[in-house]
Amino acid sequence: MDHLLHLDRTLDELDPPRWGAPDADATGSIRTVHGMRHIPLGDLSPADLRMLVSQQVALPYVLPLAVRLLVEDPLLDAYFYEGDLLLASVRAPSSAWSLMPDLHARLRAVITALPETAIAELPRGAAEDLARFVTQPEAHGPGRSGTR
């Protein structure tokens, strides 16, 4: 399913069950993520996507949006630093990527095209995270075999 077709819908609509209101003692981050579930996908900012990916919320819906941005600007500064959305994305669990092998391949191609100088300027540990993502065995969607 192409999750980008649902840009006018919210995560609460697309990713059941709907979340209730956060607890009264919830952290600011939890309140923020709860609020993002009510925003149409097409209105989520790069910073929102970074937060949702980092918190592993509705990854089948937010990773395609993140990759769409990263194809255009791999080192996008979503909120904290240059490349923060990219690093959040490659740190998403491999189980999420296995549901979207074509998306995984697109992001892998983006990463392998990055100049070494750009990777060297990312925070400590980033080069290892990127290398781990690139060298992951090719992801295959449900019901797909490893043969071509």
Rank of each mutant, 00 (worst) to 15 (best):
M1N: 10
M1E: 12
M1V: 13
M1G: 14
D2E: 10
H6V: 01
D8I: 02
T10A: 06
D12L: 08
D12Q: 07
E13F: 00
L14Q: 08
D15E: 09
P16W: 06
P17C: 01
P17V: 06
R18F: 06
W19G: 13
P22D: 07
P22Y: 03
D23K: 12
A24P: 08
D25G: 10
A26H: 06
A26Y: 08
A26F: 09
S29L: 15
S29T: 14
I30C: 11
T32R: 13
M36T: 03
R37F: 04
R37Q: 03
I39W: 01
I39Y: 09
I39A: 05
P40W: 08
G42A: 04
D43C: 10
D43L: 12
L44D: 05
P46G: 00
A47M: 09
L52E: 00
L52C: 04
Q56N: 15
A58H: 03
A58Q: 03
L59I: 02
Y61A: 08
Y61R: 04
Y61V: 03
V62H: 01
V62W: 03
L63W: 07
L63K: 08
P64T: 02
L65P: 02
A66D: 01
R68I: 09
L70T: 00
E72Q: 15
L76N: 02
L76H: 06
Y79S: 12
Y79G: 13
F80W: 15
E82N: 12
G83I: 05
D84F: 02
L85H: 02
L85A: 03
L86C: 00
L86S: 01
A88F: 00
V90G: 05
V90I: 07
R91A: 15
R91Q: 15
A92R: 03
A92H: 07
P93W: 01
S94L: 13
S95E: 14
A96S: 06
A96P: 07
W97H: 03
W97K: 04
W97M: 05
L99A: 13
L99W: 13
P101F: 03
P101Q: 05
L103I: 04
A105W: 09
A105D: 15
A105H: 12
R108K: 11
A109D: 14
V110A: 00
I111V: 13
I111A: 09
A113K: 12
L114V: 03
L114C: 05
T117F: 08
A120N: 10
E121F: 04
E121K: 13
R124V: 14
R124S: 15
G125H: 03
A127D: 10
A127K: 09
E128N: 11
E128V: 15
E128F: 13
A131G: 08
A131C: 06
A131F: 11
F133D: 06
F133L: 00
T135S: 13
T135L: 12
P137N: 07
P137T: 10
P137R: 12
E138A: 13
A139N: 01
A139F: 03
H140P: 07
H140E: 11
P142K: 09
R144Q: 15
S145V: 10
S145Q: 06
S145W: 10
T147S: 15
R148S: 15
